[in-house]
Amino acid sequence: MTTIYQPGEGSAGAAVASGVRKDLLSRKKVGKHGLPFHIVRDDQIKTRWTESEAVAIKITADAMASNPAVETNVAAIRGFLAMFAEAPEMLVHVHNELKVAKLPAPEWLPALPHKDLQP
């Protein structure tokens, strides 16, 4: 796996302040309480919302005749698209890692913008 350098002045998701990102990361839990990370699948990792965040998400989803899981996924995808617009090198990184893993790109993932950005 490749590590992407992120300059201190902010890029790649700059719209989400680093303090917010750190707060969300601090709430990350792995599987059932006490289950070691190495035996948990990635899709079992969940970020816990505060009560007010969860209610705000539910109210939004209800107003859209949807559910919180779908709307948080939509918000995440929209956030990724904004990040890729801010930092095209992250889009290149994602495409490269998907290629290495021999996985197709999700249909919502933008195509690579320019040949000069590809390694």
Rank of each mutant, 00 (worst) to 15 (best):
residue 1 M to C: 09
residue 3 T to C: 10
residue 4 I to H: 02
residue 6 Q to I: 14
residue 6 Q to G: 09
residue 8 G to C: 07
residue 9 E to F: 03
residue 9 E to S: 04
residue 10 G to P: 00
residue 11 S to N: 13
residue 12 A to T: 01
residue 12 A to C: 09
residue 14 A to T: 05
residue 14 A to N: 07
residue 14 A to E: 08
residue 15 A to F: 15
residue 15 A to H: 12
residue 16 V to H: 04
residue 16 V to D: 03
residue 17 A to H: 15
residue 17 A to D: 14
residue 18 S to A: 11
residue 19 G to V: 14
residue 20 V to E: 11
residue 22 K to G: 10
residue 23 D to R: 09
residue 26 S to Y: 05
residue 26 S to N: 07
residue 27 R to M: 09
residue 27 R to L: 10
residue 27 R to W: 08
residue 27 R to D: 07
residue 28 K to G: 10
residue 28 K to V: 15
residue 29 K to A: 12
residue 29 K to N: 08
residue 30 V to I: 15
residue 30 V to Q: 10
residue 32 K to M: 12
residue 35 L to P: 01
residue 35 L to E: 15
residue 36 P to G: 03
residue 36 P to W: 09
residue 40 V to N: 01
residue 41 R to E: 05
residue 41 R to G: 03
residue 45 I to C: 11
residue 47 T to F: 06
residue 47 T to Y: 05
residue 47 T to S: 04
residue 48 R to N: 10
residue 48 R to G: 06
residue 48 R to F: 07
residue 48 R to K: 14
residue 49 W to A: 13
residue 50 T to K: 05
residue 50 T to M: 03
residue 50 T to W: 03
residue 51 E to C: 11
residue 51 E to F: 12
residue 52 S to I: 09
residue 52 S to A: 11
residue 52 S to K: 10
residue 52 S to Q: 11
residue 54 A to L: 05
residue 54 A to Y: 05
residue 59 I to Q: 12
residue 59 I to Y: 08
residue 60 T to R: 15
residue 60 T to M: 15
residue 62 D to F: 06
residue 63 A to Q: 04
residue 65 A to K: 14
residue 66 S to I: 07
residue 66 S to D: 05
residue 66 S to G: 06
residue 68 P to G: 06
residue 69 A to C: 13
residue 69 A to R: 15
residue 69 A to G: 13
residue 69 A to D: 15
residue 70 V to A: 14
residue 71 E to W: 00
residue 71 E to P: 01
residue 72 T to C: 12
residue 76 A to C: 14
residue 76 A to S: 14
residue 78 R to M: 08
residue 79 G to A: 05
residue 79 G to Y: 04
residue 79 G to M: 04
residue 80 F to W: 04
residue 81 L to W: 08
residue 81 L to S: 09
residue 83 M to T: 06
residue 83 M to E: 05
residue 83 M to K: 06
residue 83 M to Y: 04
residue 84 F to T: 00
residue 87 A to V: 11
residue 88 P to T: 04
residue 89 E to Q: 03
residue 92 V to E: 01
residue 92 V to A: 01
residue 93 H to N: 12
residue 93 H to M: 13
residue 94 V to G: 00
residue 94 V to Q: 01
residue 94 V to A: 03
residue 94 V to M: 02
residue 97 E to W: 06
residue 97 E to A: 07
residue 97 E to Q: 07
residue 99 K to G: 08
residue 100 V to D: 09
residue 101 A to C: 00
residue 101 A to R: 00
residue 103 L to C: 09
residue 103 L to N: 06
residue 103 L to R: 10
residue 103 L to K: 09
residue 103 L to F: 04
residue 105 A to S: 08
residue 107 E to Y: 11
residue 108 W to H: 03
residue 108 W to I: 01
residue 109 L to Y: 08
residue 110 P to I: 00
residue 111 A to F: 11
residue 111 A to M: 12
residue 111 A to I: 11
residue 112 L to R: 08
residue 113 P to S: 04
residue 114 H to I: 07
residue 114 H to M: 13
residue 116 D to T: 02
residue 117 L to P: 01
residue 118 Q to K: 12
residue 119 P to M: 00
residue 119 P to K: 00
residue 119 P to R: 01
residue 119 P to N: 00
